[in-house]
Amino acid sequence: MRARRWADTLGDLWRDTGCRHGGEPVLELLDGTGVCFVRSHAVRVWGPLRPYYGPAALDFLLGSHQPAWLEAAAVPLFISDTRLQDRMTLPKASGRWALDSGGFTMIQRFGHWTGTAQGYVDRVRRYHDEIGHLAWCAPRDWMCEPEAIHGGQIGPLTFVGTGLSVEEHQRRTVASVLELRELAPELPWIPVVQGYTPAEYEHCVGLYDRAGIDLTREPLVALGSVCRRQGTAEAHRIIRALRAHGIHRLHGFGVKTTGLLRYGHLLSSADSLSWSDRARHEDHPICGEIHPRGGQRCNNCLPWALDWRNRLLTRLACRPRQTDLVEALECAS
């Protein structure tokens, strides 16, 4: 009853997204939070029963393995080229989304990029024209974690290693941005700053500058190779170092909850698949619904992903004092 009373009082504060879940229309609040719900005789709310007011400062993109969500989800999504490239028929996006180039998988599995830049451009043009609403696309960048360069293990993943240097990875990342923009200047390519230490990230900024790309004037600049250190003071220092160079419109790749709570206020946007990682370790559905075909996990479950997203944005909206305190302490250290 509490959920029904809340939904019934929304009035003109919501819009019909045009999507359906279980035959019911999916509605979205117009307060900037992205909270979605199904309004029916049995109300299903994806997010807090008591909405918070005022838009979140962070433009959050929900990571997904499921291209079909581009039609079904009424929130911004982050989808990888590896999930789209073999599809004969592409979905029609109902809202904004961004394209991951799949660089992590390429470097992890092969130690180099397969295919050609022209082939990637052709696919992205198709996504842009057929899916629509493409906000931006990542280049064929080269991550700079030690395991990516020397080989090794990160959790269950084995990296073959490139055998190259951090500087060569940076050079190839900048070269990819230049090549893709030359091949398809009409597509929304964004630069990625790569490195491992603050000084290496600053060196990468210099490479872009010498190549004629002023990162301070870019609509968005992505930050690579920090996902394993995102909850650390070092990741925070890297972001502050880039902001000190005048680069304020930053996107964080694969940022988990810990990192967002620590320095999300310093980012313009971020993406995350953390909701799927958590659900993968559960042996039962955690979304509160019965899965079709008897599925036992929620790692590909849209209601769970949206619920996780809404709770995350609520936490971010309620944490300004803590993040300010953390930053003040780190600046003093």
Rank of each mutant, 00 (worst) to 15 (best):
W6A: 15
W6F: 14
W6S: 13
L10A: 04
G11E: 03
G11H: 11
D16Q: 05
T17G: 03
G18Y: 10
E24F: 00
L27Y: 11
L30Q: 11
D31K: 08
C36E: 11
F37Q: 09
F37V: 11
V43C: 13
V43I: 12
R44H: 13
V45G: 08
V45P: 08
L49N: 04
P51M: 07
Y53A: 12
P55A: 10
P55C: 07
D59I: 03
D59C: 12
L62W: 05
G63V: 11
L70N: 10
A73C: 09
A74H: 04
A74R: 06
P76N: 03
M88A: 12
P91M: 10
G102V: 12
G103D: 09
F104C: 05
T105D: 15
I107L: 15
Q108P: 02
R109M: 14
G115I: 11
G115L: 02
V121E: 04
R125D: 10
R126I: 07
D129V: 13
E130R: 14
E130A: 15
E130K: 12
I131E: 04
W136H: 04
W136F: 14
P139Q: 02
R140N: 14
C144F: 01
A148G: 14
G155S: 03
L157H: 05
T158P: 01
G161F: 08
V166Y: 08
E167T: 15
E167S: 14
H169W: 01
R171G: 02
T173P: 00
V174L: 07
S176M: 13
E179I: 13
R181S: 13
P185E: 08
W189H: 06
Q194G: 00
P198G: 08
Y201E: 05
E202S: 15
E202D: 14
C204M: 04
G206D: 15
L207N: 06
L207Q: 13
D209V: 02
D209Q: 15
R217E: 13
P219G: 09
L220Y: 09
V221G: 11
A222M: 10
A222Q: 08
L223F: 03
C227E: 06
R228N: 01
A233F: 11
A233M: 09
R237C: 12
I238S: 00
R240M: 06
A241N: 12
L242V: 09
G246Y: 10
I247S: 08
G254A: 13
G259Q: 05
L260Q: 10
L260C: 07
Y263N: 04
G264F: 09
D271Q: 07
S272M: 07
W275D: 01
W275L: 00
D277R: 07
A279R: 04
D283H: 14
D283E: 07
H284Q: 07
H284S: 08
I286R: 09
G288N: 13
P292K: 09
P292A: 08
C298V: 11
W308Q: 03
L312Y: 03
T314F: 06
R315F: 02
L316N: 05
A317Q: 09
R321K: 14
V326C: 01
V326Q: 01
A328I: 00
S333F: 03
